[in-house]
Nucleic acid binder design. Structure first.
Length: 106
DNA sequence: TATGACGGCCGTCATAGGCA
DNA sequence: TGCCTATGACGGCCGTCATA
């Protein structure tokens, strides 16, 4: 991933929304300590706003992604159930046909 | 009743891949 | 090439359940 420099800031100030209350202590905000690596600095407010926007969008994206994944897994589980039923039916059918052939052969 | 294990959900970070 | 989105990985919180 390219470090763009847009995220060079310390922790965002402002309201303490729920997600901020349990931010892992070990993980620094993205890009912290790398401000010197890239060109002209943007004003901190702009950086903070951009970061907040990015985090918000990613939060939503993660929710949506999890929702889709759960839906996908549910679909797969349904499909497994259907295929298991089909399999049972076919096995029964095969057994019946074998029975018929056996009686004819006798 | 305290407590440890466990599973589910969440937010964040890193990154791959698509698009202009 | 830079930006954006989707997603895997990670760590934290919370509720539930079994057990001492």
């Amino acid at each position: 991933m390219a470090v763009t420099g847009d995220d060079t800031e310390t922790a965002a100030t402002g309201d303490m929304s729920a997600y901020q209350l349990h931010t892992p202590a070990s993980s620094l905000p993205q890009g912290v300590g790398m401000a010197h690596l890239h060109g002209p600095q943007k004003p901190p407010e702009v950086i903070t706003q951009k970061r907040e926007l990015r985090l918000m969008k990613n939060r939503e994206a993660a929710r949506e992604c999890r929702r889709k994944k759960k839906e996908y897994v549910k679909c797969l589980e349904n499909r497994v159930a259907v295929l298991e039923n089909q399999n049972k039916t076919l096995i029964e059918e095969l057994r019946a046909l074998k029975d018929i052939y056996r009686h004819k052969a006798e």
